[in-house]
Design a protein around this nucleic acid. Structure first.
Lengths: 249, 249
DNA sequence: ACATTTTATTGACCTGGATCAATGCCGAAA
DNA sequence: TTTCGGCATTGATCCAGGTCAATAAAATGT
Protein backbone atom coordinates (compact mmCIF):
# COMPACT_ATOMS: atom_id res chain seq x y z
CA UNK A 1 0.00 0.00 0.00
CA UNK A 2 2.85 2.36 0.74
CA UNK A 3 4.22 1.46 -2.66
CA UNK A 4 0.90 2.18 -4.33
CA UNK A 5 1.36 5.80 -3.28
CA UNK A 6 4.80 5.93 -4.85
CA UNK A 7 3.45 4.60 -8.12
CA UNK A 8 0.29 6.67 -8.27
CA UNK A 9 1.72 9.96 -9.62
CA UNK A 10 2.92 8.55 -12.94
CA UNK A 11 -0.25 6.56 -13.48
CA UNK A 12 -2.09 9.81 -13.02
CA UNK A 13 0.07 11.44 -15.67
CA UNK A 14 -1.09 8.79 -18.09
CA UNK A 15 -4.65 9.01 -16.88
CA UNK A 16 -4.82 12.75 -17.52
CA UNK A 17 -4.51 11.91 -21.17
CA UNK A 18 -8.09 10.77 -21.09
CA UNK A 19 -9.12 14.36 -20.60
CA UNK A 20 -6.93 15.63 -23.44
CA UNK A 21 -7.55 13.14 -26.21
CA UNK A 22 -5.71 15.07 -28.82
CA UNK A 23 -2.57 15.64 -26.78
CA UNK A 24 0.35 15.64 -29.20
CA UNK A 25 2.93 12.85 -29.17
CA UNK A 26 5.61 15.44 -28.48
CA UNK A 27 4.21 16.23 -25.10
CA UNK A 28 3.24 12.67 -24.23
CA UNK A 29 4.83 11.14 -21.16
CA UNK A 30 5.47 7.99 -23.19
CA UNK A 31 7.36 9.74 -25.97
CA UNK A 32 10.69 8.06 -25.38
CA UNK A 33 9.09 4.57 -25.26
CA UNK A 34 6.74 4.97 -28.15
CA UNK A 35 6.59 4.84 -31.91
CA UNK A 36 7.50 8.47 -32.66
CA UNK A 37 10.94 8.13 -31.10
CA UNK A 38 13.56 9.33 -33.55
CA UNK A 39 11.10 10.96 -35.95
CA UNK A 40 11.71 14.47 -37.18
CA UNK A 41 9.53 17.29 -35.94
CA UNK A 42 7.43 17.61 -39.09
CA UNK A 43 7.10 13.87 -39.65
CA UNK A 44 5.91 13.61 -36.10
CA UNK A 45 3.19 16.19 -36.55
CA UNK A 46 1.97 14.34 -39.66
CA UNK A 47 1.84 11.14 -37.64
CA UNK A 48 0.09 12.99 -34.85
CA UNK A 49 -2.80 13.77 -37.15
CA UNK A 50 -3.64 10.18 -38.00
CA UNK A 51 -3.45 8.91 -34.43
CA UNK A 52 -6.75 8.66 -32.67
CA UNK A 53 -6.53 8.92 -28.88
CA UNK A 54 -9.33 6.78 -27.63
CA UNK A 55 -11.54 7.19 -24.62
CA UNK A 56 -10.93 5.12 -21.52
CA UNK A 57 -11.43 1.39 -21.30
CA UNK A 58 -12.91 -0.19 -18.20
CA UNK A 59 -11.50 -3.26 -16.51
CA UNK A 60 -12.35 -6.39 -18.56
CA UNK A 61 -13.51 -4.34 -21.52
CA UNK A 62 -12.66 -5.89 -24.87
CA UNK A 63 -10.39 -3.97 -27.22
CA UNK A 64 -10.76 -6.44 -30.08
CA UNK A 65 -11.78 -10.02 -30.75
CA UNK A 66 -10.90 -12.54 -33.47
CA UNK A 67 -14.16 -11.72 -35.21
CA UNK A 68 -13.29 -8.05 -35.75
CA UNK A 69 -11.41 -7.14 -38.92
CA UNK A 70 -7.99 -5.65 -38.66
CA UNK A 71 -7.62 -1.95 -39.33
CA UNK A 72 -5.64 -0.67 -36.39
CA UNK A 73 -2.58 -1.27 -34.30
CA UNK A 74 -3.15 -0.16 -30.72
CA UNK A 75 -0.63 1.43 -28.39
CA UNK A 76 -1.28 1.32 -24.67
CA UNK A 77 -1.41 4.84 -23.34
CA UNK A 78 -2.26 4.09 -19.72
CA UNK A 79 -3.22 0.96 -17.79
CA UNK A 80 -2.63 -2.53 -19.10
CA UNK A 81 -4.10 -5.23 -21.34
CA UNK A 82 -3.87 -8.97 -21.89
CA UNK A 83 -4.33 -10.94 -25.09
CA UNK A 84 -5.63 -14.50 -25.21
CA UNK A 85 -5.80 -17.02 -28.00
CA UNK A 86 -8.44 -19.75 -27.96
CA UNK A 87 -8.43 -23.41 -28.95
CA UNK A 88 -11.43 -24.80 -30.81
CA UNK A 89 -12.87 -26.21 -27.58
CA UNK A 90 -12.64 -22.90 -25.74
CA UNK A 91 -9.44 -23.41 -23.78
CA UNK A 92 -7.60 -20.09 -23.66
CA UNK A 93 -3.94 -19.20 -23.45
CA UNK A 94 -2.91 -15.77 -22.21
CA UNK A 95 -0.25 -14.92 -24.79
CA UNK A 96 0.93 -11.50 -23.60
CA UNK A 97 0.45 -8.61 -21.25
CA UNK A 98 0.83 -5.06 -22.53
CA UNK A 99 1.91 -1.92 -20.68
CA UNK A 100 2.10 1.76 -21.67
CA UNK A 101 4.01 2.29 -24.89
CA UNK A 102 3.58 -1.31 -26.06
CA UNK A 103 1.83 -2.29 -29.31
CA UNK A 104 -1.16 -4.61 -29.45
CA UNK A 105 -2.50 -6.39 -32.51
CA UNK A 106 0.58 -6.75 -34.71
CA UNK A 107 -0.07 -10.46 -35.20
CA UNK A 108 -3.15 -9.44 -37.20
CA UNK A 109 -1.17 -7.95 -40.09
CA UNK A 110 -0.86 -11.38 -41.65
CA UNK A 111 -4.44 -12.57 -42.36
CA UNK A 112 -5.79 -9.03 -41.84
CA UNK A 113 -7.81 -10.12 -38.83
CA UNK A 114 -7.08 -10.38 -35.16
CA UNK A 115 -5.88 -13.75 -33.99
CA UNK A 116 -6.53 -13.08 -30.34
CA UNK A 117 -8.81 -11.28 -27.93
CA UNK A 118 -7.48 -8.21 -26.12
CA UNK A 119 -8.97 -7.15 -22.80
CA UNK A 120 -8.19 -4.32 -20.41
CA UNK A 121 -6.84 -5.47 -17.05
CA UNK A 122 -7.73 -2.19 -15.38
CA UNK A 123 -9.00 1.26 -16.36
CA UNK A 124 -6.88 1.98 -19.42
CA UNK A 125 -6.57 4.12 -22.51
CA UNK A 126 -4.98 3.60 -25.89
CA UNK A 127 -3.89 5.29 -29.11
CA UNK A 128 -5.16 3.88 -32.39
CA UNK A 129 -2.78 3.72 -35.33
CA UNK A 130 -4.64 3.09 -38.61
CA UNK A 131 -2.44 0.48 -40.25
CA UNK A 132 -2.99 1.55 -43.86
CA UNK A 133 -2.08 5.15 -43.14
CA UNK A 134 0.93 3.96 -41.21
CA UNK A 135 2.04 2.01 -44.27
CA UNK A 136 1.63 5.02 -46.53
CA UNK A 137 3.66 7.15 -44.15
CA UNK A 138 6.34 4.51 -43.85
CA UNK A 139 7.14 4.92 -47.54
CA UNK A 140 8.31 8.49 -46.94
CA UNK A 141 9.53 8.13 -43.36
CA UNK A 142 12.11 5.34 -43.28
CA UNK A 143 12.53 5.68 -39.53
CA UNK A 144 8.85 4.89 -39.03
CA UNK A 145 9.12 1.74 -41.10
CA UNK A 146 12.17 0.75 -39.09
CA UNK A 147 10.32 1.35 -35.82
CA UNK A 148 7.44 -0.87 -36.90
CA UNK A 149 9.69 -3.74 -37.95
CA UNK A 150 11.64 -3.40 -34.72
CA UNK A 151 8.48 -3.57 -32.66
CA UNK A 152 7.29 -6.67 -34.48
CA UNK A 153 10.67 -8.25 -33.98
CA UNK A 154 10.74 -7.30 -30.30
CA UNK A 155 7.41 -8.95 -29.62
CA UNK A 156 8.58 -12.01 -31.52
CA UNK A 157 11.69 -12.18 -29.34
CA UNK A 158 9.53 -12.02 -26.23
CA UNK A 159 7.31 -14.81 -27.58
CA UNK A 160 10.32 -17.01 -28.29
CA UNK A 161 11.56 -16.48 -24.76
CA UNK A 162 8.16 -17.45 -23.45
CA UNK A 163 8.34 -20.61 -25.58
CA UNK A 164 11.56 -21.44 -23.77
CA UNK A 165 9.84 -20.89 -20.43
CA UNK A 166 6.80 -22.97 -21.30
CA UNK A 167 8.78 -25.76 -22.89
CA UNK A 168 11.80 -26.13 -20.67
CA UNK A 169 11.50 -24.38 -17.35
CA UNK A 170 10.20 -25.59 -13.99
CA UNK A 171 7.21 -23.89 -12.40
CA UNK A 172 9.46 -21.79 -10.13
CA UNK A 173 11.70 -20.72 -13.00
CA UNK A 174 8.67 -19.74 -15.05
CA UNK A 175 7.29 -17.50 -12.33
CA UNK A 176 10.65 -15.92 -11.60
CA UNK A 177 11.32 -15.25 -15.31
CA UNK A 178 7.89 -13.68 -15.56
CA UNK A 179 8.40 -11.43 -12.54
CA UNK A 180 11.82 -10.36 -13.79
CA UNK A 181 10.37 -9.47 -17.17
CA UNK A 182 7.73 -7.33 -15.45
CA UNK A 183 10.38 -5.74 -13.25
CA UNK A 184 12.39 -4.84 -16.33
CA UNK A 185 9.42 -3.35 -18.14
CA UNK A 186 8.28 -1.34 -15.12
CA UNK A 187 11.74 0.05 -14.62
CA UNK A 188 11.91 1.06 -18.31
CA UNK A 189 8.72 3.03 -17.63
CA UNK A 190 10.19 4.89 -14.70
CA UNK A 191 8.70 2.76 -11.94
CA UNK A 192 10.60 0.84 -9.33
CA UNK A 193 12.16 -2.40 -10.56
CA UNK A 194 11.88 -3.84 -7.08
CA UNK A 195 8.34 -3.07 -6.05
CA UNK A 196 5.29 -3.04 -8.27
CA UNK A 197 1.61 -3.86 -8.56
CA UNK A 198 0.53 -6.88 -10.56
CA UNK A 199 -2.36 -5.65 -12.65
CA UNK A 200 -3.33 -9.19 -13.66
CA UNK A 201 -4.90 -11.89 -11.48
CA UNK A 202 -3.17 -15.03 -10.23
CA UNK A 203 -5.33 -16.86 -12.73
CA UNK A 204 -3.97 -14.79 -15.61
CA UNK A 205 -0.38 -15.39 -14.48
CA UNK A 206 -0.98 -19.12 -14.07
CA UNK A 207 -2.61 -19.40 -17.45
CA UNK A 208 0.14 -17.38 -19.14
CA UNK A 209 2.81 -19.66 -17.67
CA UNK A 210 0.99 -22.93 -18.29
CA UNK A 211 0.46 -23.58 -14.58
CA UNK A 212 -2.49 -24.04 -12.21
CA UNK A 213 -3.57 -21.11 -10.05
CA UNK A 214 -2.80 -23.15 -6.96
CA UNK A 215 0.76 -23.72 -8.12
CA UNK A 216 1.32 -19.99 -8.62
CA UNK A 217 -0.09 -19.30 -5.20
CA UNK A 218 2.18 -21.91 -3.60
CA UNK A 219 5.19 -20.57 -5.50
CA UNK A 220 4.60 -17.07 -4.15
CA UNK A 221 4.44 -18.51 -0.64
CA UNK A 222 7.59 -20.51 -1.28
CA UNK A 223 9.53 -17.51 -2.66
CA UNK A 224 8.51 -15.54 0.41
CA UNK A 225 9.73 -18.33 2.70
CA UNK A 226 13.05 -18.22 0.87
CA UNK A 227 13.23 -14.45 1.54
CA UNK A 228 13.46 -13.69 -2.17
CA UNK A 229 10.41 -11.44 -2.28
CA UNK A 230 7.30 -10.42 -0.39
CA UNK A 231 3.73 -10.04 -1.60
CA UNK A 232 0.66 -8.35 -0.22
CA UNK A 233 -2.13 -9.22 -2.58
CA UNK A 234 -1.21 -7.73 -5.94
CA UNK A 235 1.87 -5.93 -4.69
CA UNK A 236 5.22 -7.62 -5.17
CA UNK A 237 8.44 -6.46 -3.56
CA UNK A 238 11.64 -8.08 -4.71
CA UNK A 239 14.08 -8.59 -1.83
CA UNK A 240 16.93 -10.37 -3.57
CA UNK A 241 17.16 -9.57 -7.27
CA UNK A 242 20.51 -11.31 -7.89
CA UNK A 243 19.26 -14.53 -6.29
CA UNK A 244 16.12 -14.41 -8.44
CA UNK A 245 18.15 -13.82 -11.61
CA UNK A 246 20.24 -16.80 -10.74
CA UNK A 247 17.19 -19.00 -10.30
CA UNK A 248 15.35 -18.13 -13.51
CA UNK A 249 17.27 -20.64 -15.67
CA UNK B 1 9.38 -45.54 -49.49
CA UNK B 2 6.93 -45.41 -52.39
CA UNK B 3 6.03 -41.96 -51.21
CA UNK B 4 9.64 -40.87 -51.20
CA UNK B 5 9.63 -41.40 -54.94
CA UNK B 6 6.58 -39.18 -55.33
CA UNK B 7 8.25 -36.43 -53.35
CA UNK B 8 11.65 -36.60 -54.96
CA UNK B 9 11.02 -34.62 -58.17
CA UNK B 10 10.24 -31.30 -56.48
CA UNK B 11 13.08 -31.62 -54.01
CA UNK B 12 15.31 -32.07 -57.03
CA UNK B 13 13.95 -28.89 -58.57
CA UNK B 14 15.04 -27.05 -55.46
CA UNK B 15 18.34 -28.88 -55.33
CA UNK B 16 19.26 -27.86 -58.88
CA UNK B 17 19.43 -24.33 -57.60
CA UNK B 18 22.70 -25.15 -55.95
CA UNK B 19 24.25 -25.47 -59.38
CA UNK B 20 22.83 -22.12 -60.57
CA UNK B 21 23.50 -19.83 -57.66
CA UNK B 22 22.48 -16.70 -59.47
CA UNK B 23 19.20 -18.06 -60.80
CA UNK B 24 16.76 -15.16 -60.92
CA UNK B 25 13.78 -15.03 -58.57
CA UNK B 26 11.49 -14.97 -61.61
CA UNK B 27 12.46 -18.47 -62.62
CA UNK B 28 12.66 -19.84 -59.09
CA UNK B 29 10.37 -22.73 -58.22
CA UNK B 30 9.55 -20.95 -54.96
CA UNK B 31 8.45 -17.72 -56.59
CA UNK B 32 4.81 -17.89 -55.54
CA UNK B 33 5.77 -18.63 -51.90
CA UNK B 34 8.58 -16.17 -51.55
CA UNK B 35 9.30 -12.54 -50.93
CA UNK B 36 9.14 -11.27 -54.52
CA UNK B 37 5.49 -12.23 -54.91
CA UNK B 38 3.53 -9.25 -56.18
CA UNK B 39 6.56 -7.17 -57.07
CA UNK B 40 6.77 -5.48 -60.47
CA UNK B 41 9.17 -6.80 -63.06
CA UNK B 42 11.75 -4.03 -62.65
CA UNK B 43 11.54 -3.92 -58.86
CA UNK B 44 12.10 -7.63 -58.89
CA UNK B 45 15.25 -7.41 -60.94
CA UNK B 46 16.61 -4.76 -58.55
CA UNK B 47 15.89 -7.08 -55.65
CA UNK B 48 17.46 -9.95 -57.56
CA UNK B 49 20.75 -8.13 -57.58
CA UNK B 50 21.12 -7.80 -53.84
CA UNK B 51 20.15 -11.39 -53.08
CA UNK B 52 23.04 -13.73 -52.55
CA UNK B 53 22.28 -17.37 -53.34
CA UNK B 54 24.43 -19.31 -50.97
CA UNK B 55 26.18 -22.61 -51.47
CA UNK B 56 24.74 -25.74 -49.91
CA UNK B 57 24.57 -26.43 -46.20
CA UNK B 58 25.26 -29.87 -44.83
CA UNK B 59 23.10 -31.62 -42.22
CA UNK B 60 23.72 -30.06 -38.77
CA UNK B 61 25.66 -27.16 -40.24
CA UNK B 62 25.09 -23.88 -38.41
CA UNK B 63 23.58 -20.99 -40.33
CA UNK B 64 23.95 -18.50 -37.50
CA UNK B 65 24.43 -18.38 -33.72
CA UNK B 66 23.57 -15.82 -31.05
CA UNK B 67 27.17 -14.59 -31.12
CA UNK B 68 27.02 -13.52 -34.79
CA UNK B 69 25.84 -9.99 -35.53
CA UNK B 70 22.72 -9.50 -37.57
CA UNK B 71 23.11 -8.42 -41.16
CA UNK B 72 20.96 -10.84 -43.10
CA UNK B 73 17.54 -12.41 -43.25
CA UNK B 74 17.72 -15.90 -44.71
CA UNK B 75 15.19 -17.59 -46.95
CA UNK B 76 15.22 -21.35 -47.21
CA UNK B 77 15.74 -22.33 -50.83
CA UNK B 78 15.88 -26.10 -50.41
CA UNK B 79 15.98 -28.48 -47.46
CA UNK B 80 15.02 -27.43 -43.95
CA UNK B 81 16.34 -25.79 -40.80
CA UNK B 82 15.56 -25.57 -37.10
CA UNK B 83 16.16 -22.71 -34.69
CA UNK B 84 16.84 -23.18 -30.98
CA UNK B 85 17.01 -20.73 -28.12
CA UNK B 86 19.11 -21.48 -25.06
CA UNK B 87 18.62 -20.86 -21.36
CA UNK B 88 21.59 -19.70 -19.29
CA UNK B 89 22.24 -23.24 -18.09
CA UNK B 90 22.33 -24.69 -21.60
CA UNK B 91 18.82 -26.12 -21.84
CA UNK B 92 17.57 -25.59 -25.39
CA UNK B 93 14.14 -25.07 -26.86
CA UNK B 94 13.52 -25.78 -30.55
CA UNK B 95 11.49 -22.70 -31.44
CA UNK B 96 10.73 -23.33 -35.13
CA UNK B 97 11.32 -25.42 -38.19
CA UNK B 98 11.75 -23.73 -41.56
CA UNK B 99 10.95 -25.04 -45.04
CA UNK B 100 11.53 -23.67 -48.55
CA UNK B 101 10.27 -20.11 -48.95
CA UNK B 102 10.26 -19.42 -45.20
CA UNK B 103 12.30 -16.64 -43.57
CA UNK B 104 14.84 -17.24 -40.81
CA UNK B 105 16.31 -14.66 -38.47
CA UNK B 106 13.59 -12.02 -38.29
CA UNK B 107 13.66 -12.00 -34.50
CA UNK B 108 17.14 -10.48 -34.78
CA UNK B 109 15.92 -7.14 -36.17
CA UNK B 110 15.26 -5.90 -32.66
CA UNK B 111 18.64 -5.95 -30.85
CA UNK B 112 20.48 -6.35 -34.17
CA UNK B 113 21.81 -9.76 -33.19
CA UNK B 114 20.50 -13.26 -33.53
CA UNK B 115 18.57 -14.54 -30.55
CA UNK B 116 18.76 -18.16 -31.58
CA UNK B 117 20.91 -20.74 -33.30
CA UNK B 118 19.86 -21.97 -36.76
CA UNK B 119 20.98 -25.39 -37.99
CA UNK B 120 20.33 -27.30 -41.21
CA UNK B 121 18.29 -30.48 -40.69
CA UNK B 122 19.47 -31.94 -44.00
CA UNK B 123 21.43 -30.86 -47.07
CA UNK B 124 19.95 -27.41 -47.69
CA UNK B 125 20.50 -24.11 -49.44
CA UNK B 126 19.40 -20.57 -48.74
CA UNK B 127 19.13 -17.07 -50.14
CA UNK B 128 20.62 -14.21 -48.15
CA UNK B 129 18.74 -10.92 -47.96
CA UNK B 130 20.96 -8.10 -46.65
CA UNK B 131 18.63 -6.36 -44.22
CA UNK B 132 19.93 -2.82 -44.71
CA UNK B 133 19.55 -3.00 -48.47
CA UNK B 134 16.12 -4.48 -48.01
CA UNK B 135 15.17 -1.49 -45.87
CA UNK B 136 16.44 0.96 -48.49
CA UNK B 137 14.45 -0.80 -51.19
CA UNK B 138 11.34 -0.91 -49.04
CA UNK B 139 11.21 2.88 -49.08
CA UNK B 140 10.60 2.86 -52.84
CA UNK B 141 8.78 -0.47 -53.14
CA UNK B 142 5.79 -0.38 -50.79
CA UNK B 143 4.85 -3.93 -51.69
CA UNK B 144 8.22 -5.15 -50.41
CA UNK B 145 7.72 -3.41 -47.10
CA UNK B 146 4.29 -4.93 -46.86
CA UNK B 147 5.68 -8.41 -47.58
CA UNK B 148 8.27 -8.08 -44.83
CA UNK B 149 5.75 -6.95 -42.22
CA UNK B 150 3.41 -9.73 -43.27
CA UNK B 151 6.15 -12.32 -42.88
CA UNK B 152 7.06 -11.07 -39.44
CA UNK B 153 3.41 -11.11 -38.47
CA UNK B 154 2.94 -14.61 -39.88
CA UNK B 155 5.80 -16.04 -37.84
CA UNK B 156 4.43 -14.27 -34.79
CA UNK B 157 1.04 -15.88 -35.37
CA UNK B 158 2.70 -19.28 -35.59
CA UNK B 159 4.58 -18.63 -32.35
CA UNK B 160 1.37 -17.65 -30.57
CA UNK B 161 -0.29 -20.83 -31.73
CA UNK B 162 2.66 -22.80 -30.42
CA UNK B 163 2.27 -21.00 -27.08
CA UNK B 164 -1.29 -22.31 -27.00
CA UNK B 165 -0.02 -25.83 -27.70
CA UNK B 166 2.71 -25.70 -25.08
CA UNK B 167 0.55 -24.07 -22.45
CA UNK B 168 -2.81 -25.77 -22.82
CA UNK B 169 -2.70 -28.91 -24.92
CA UNK B 170 -2.15 -32.54 -23.97
CA UNK B 171 0.79 -34.45 -25.39
CA UNK B 172 -1.38 -36.06 -28.06
CA UNK B 173 -2.96 -32.76 -29.08
CA UNK B 174 0.48 -31.18 -29.31
CA UNK B 175 1.79 -33.86 -31.65
CA UNK B 176 -1.33 -33.83 -33.81
CA UNK B 177 -1.29 -30.03 -34.09
CA UNK B 178 2.35 -30.21 -35.08
CA UNK B 179 1.76 -32.85 -37.74
CA UNK B 180 -1.18 -30.91 -39.15
CA UNK B 181 0.91 -27.77 -39.37
CA UNK B 182 3.57 -29.71 -41.29
CA UNK B 183 0.92 -31.25 -43.52
CA UNK B 184 -0.41 -27.77 -44.31
CA UNK B 185 3.00 -26.39 -45.10
CA UNK B 186 3.99 -29.33 -47.28
CA UNK B 187 0.78 -29.07 -49.23
CA UNK B 188 1.35 -25.32 -49.77
CA UNK B 189 4.68 -26.34 -51.30
CA UNK B 190 3.09 -28.75 -53.73
CA UNK B 191 3.73 -31.94 -51.77
CA UNK B 192 1.18 -34.37 -50.50
CA UNK B 193 -0.69 -33.21 -47.42
CA UNK B 194 -1.21 -36.82 -46.40
CA UNK B 195 2.20 -38.37 -46.74
CA UNK B 196 5.53 -36.75 -46.04
CA UNK B 197 9.01 -37.18 -44.66
CA UNK B 198 9.87 -35.70 -41.27
CA UNK B 199 13.22 -34.03 -41.76
CA UNK B 200 13.72 -33.58 -38.02
CA UNK B 201 14.45 -36.27 -35.43
CA UNK B 202 12.02 -37.49 -32.78
CA UNK B 203 14.23 -35.61 -30.34
CA UNK B 204 13.69 -32.33 -32.20
CA UNK B 205 9.94 -32.87 -32.30
CA UNK B 206 9.82 -33.76 -28.60
CA UNK B 207 11.90 -30.76 -27.65
CA UNK B 208 9.81 -28.42 -29.82
CA UNK B 209 6.59 -29.62 -28.18
CA UNK B 210 7.90 -29.66 -24.61
CA UNK B 211 7.75 -33.46 -24.37
CA UNK B 212 10.18 -36.32 -23.79
CA UNK B 213 11.38 -38.35 -26.78
CA UNK B 214 9.80 -41.45 -25.28
CA UNK B 215 6.43 -39.73 -25.10
CA UNK B 216 6.57 -38.77 -28.78
CA UNK B 217 7.51 -42.32 -29.67
CA UNK B 218 4.63 -43.74 -27.64
CA UNK B 219 2.23 -41.23 -29.19
CA UNK B 220 3.18 -42.31 -32.71
CA UNK B 221 2.53 -45.91 -31.70
CA UNK B 222 -0.76 -44.92 -30.14
CA UNK B 223 -1.93 -42.94 -33.19
CA UNK B 224 -1.10 -45.95 -35.37
CA UNK B 225 -3.09 -48.25 -33.08
CA UNK B 226 -6.00 -45.85 -33.47
CA UNK B 227 -5.66 -46.11 -37.27
CA UNK B 228 -5.18 -42.36 -37.59
CA UNK B 229 -1.82 -42.55 -39.33
CA UNK B 230 1.08 -44.86 -40.10
CA UNK B 231 4.80 -44.24 -39.78
CA UNK B 232 7.84 -45.97 -41.15
CA UNK B 233 10.79 -44.25 -39.60
CA UNK B 234 10.69 -40.63 -40.76
CA UNK B 235 7.80 -41.12 -43.15
CA UNK B 236 4.33 -40.23 -41.92
CA UNK B 237 1.14 -41.15 -43.76
CA UNK B 238 -2.06 -39.64 -42.50
CA UNK B 239 -4.97 -42.06 -42.73
CA UNK B 240 -7.77 -40.04 -41.20
CA UNK B 241 -7.28 -36.30 -41.54
CA UNK B 242 -10.74 -35.28 -40.25
CA UNK B 243 -10.31 -37.39 -37.13
CA UNK B 244 -6.91 -35.81 -36.49
CA UNK B 245 -8.28 -32.31 -36.98
CA UNK B 246 -10.96 -33.11 -34.48
CA UNK B 247 -8.43 -34.28 -31.91
CA UNK B 248 -5.98 -31.38 -32.08
CA UNK B 249 -7.90 -29.18 -29.64
C1' DA C 1 -21.62 -0.61 6.66
C1' DC C 2 -23.05 -4.93 5.03
C1' DA C 3 -23.90 -8.72 1.66
C1' DT C 4 -22.39 -11.01 -2.30
C1' DT C 5 -19.19 -12.45 -5.47
C1' DT C 6 -14.73 -13.12 -6.93
C1' DT C 7 -9.99 -14.20 -6.07
C1' DA C 8 -6.31 -16.24 -3.30
C1' DT C 9 -4.41 -19.56 -0.11
C1' DT C 10 -3.64 -24.03 1.85
C1' DG C 11 -4.03 -29.06 2.37
C1' DA C 12 -4.79 -33.91 0.63
C1' DC C 13 -4.47 -36.68 -3.06
C1' DC C 14 -3.84 -38.11 -7.96
C1' DT C 15 -2.02 -38.51 -12.65
C1' DG C 16 0.17 -37.40 -17.22
C1' DG C 17 4.13 -37.47 -18.77
C1' DA C 18 9.20 -37.61 -17.23
C1' DT C 19 12.97 -40.47 -16.11
C1' DC C 20 15.52 -44.66 -15.95
C1' DA C 21 16.74 -48.83 -18.24
C1' DA C 22 16.99 -52.22 -21.78
C1' DT C 23 16.62 -53.56 -26.43
C1' DG C 24 16.00 -53.07 -31.33
C1' DC C 25 16.90 -50.89 -35.76
C1' DC C 26 18.90 -48.57 -39.53
C1' DG C 27 22.37 -46.03 -42.16
C1' DA C 28 27.15 -44.79 -42.81
C1' DA C 29 31.87 -46.24 -42.92
C1' DA C 30 35.25 -49.70 -43.94
C1' DT D 1 28.87 -57.72 -45.45
C1' DT D 2 29.91 -56.52 -41.09
C1' DT D 3 30.42 -53.36 -37.53
C1' DC D 4 29.50 -49.35 -35.21
C1' DG D 5 27.04 -45.27 -33.36
C1' DG D 6 23.20 -42.69 -33.20
C1' DC D 7 17.96 -43.07 -33.25
C1' DA D 8 13.73 -45.10 -32.00
C1' DT D 9 10.80 -48.11 -29.38
C1' DT D 10 8.99 -50.25 -25.25
C1' DG D 11 8.49 -51.30 -20.32
C1' DA D 12 8.78 -50.10 -15.29
C1' DT D 13 8.77 -46.65 -12.03
C1' DC D 14 8.54 -41.95 -10.21
C1' DC D 15 7.36 -37.17 -9.31
C1' DA D 16 6.20 -32.18 -10.44
C1' DG D 17 2.52 -30.12 -10.80
C1' DG D 18 -2.57 -30.77 -11.54
C1' DT D 19 -7.14 -31.51 -9.44
C1' DC D 20 -10.42 -31.48 -5.79
C1' DA D 21 -12.02 -29.46 -1.61
C1' DA D 22 -12.34 -26.25 2.04
C1' DT D 23 -11.47 -21.69 3.84
C1' DA D 24 -10.05 -17.07 3.93
C1' DA D 25 -9.55 -12.64 2.27
C1' DA D 26 -10.40 -9.11 -1.07
C1' DA D 27 -13.08 -6.61 -4.25
C1' DT D 28 -17.60 -4.98 -5.66
C1' DG D 29 -22.15 -3.64 -5.42
C1' DT D 30 -26.24 -1.90 -2.56
Amino acid sequence: MTQARVITPLFEDFAKVEHHHQLACQSCALYRLCLPLGLHRDDLSKLDQIIKRSAGFKRHQILFEPASTFKTIFVVRSGSFKTTISAADGREQVTSFYFPGEFIGMDAIYQQRYLSTARALEASSICELPYERLQEFSATIPELQNQLMTRLSKEMSADKNLLLSLGKKTAQEKLISFLLSLSQRFSERGYSALSFQLTMSRGDIANHLGLAIETVSRLFTQLQEQQLLTTQGKEVTILDLPALKQRCG
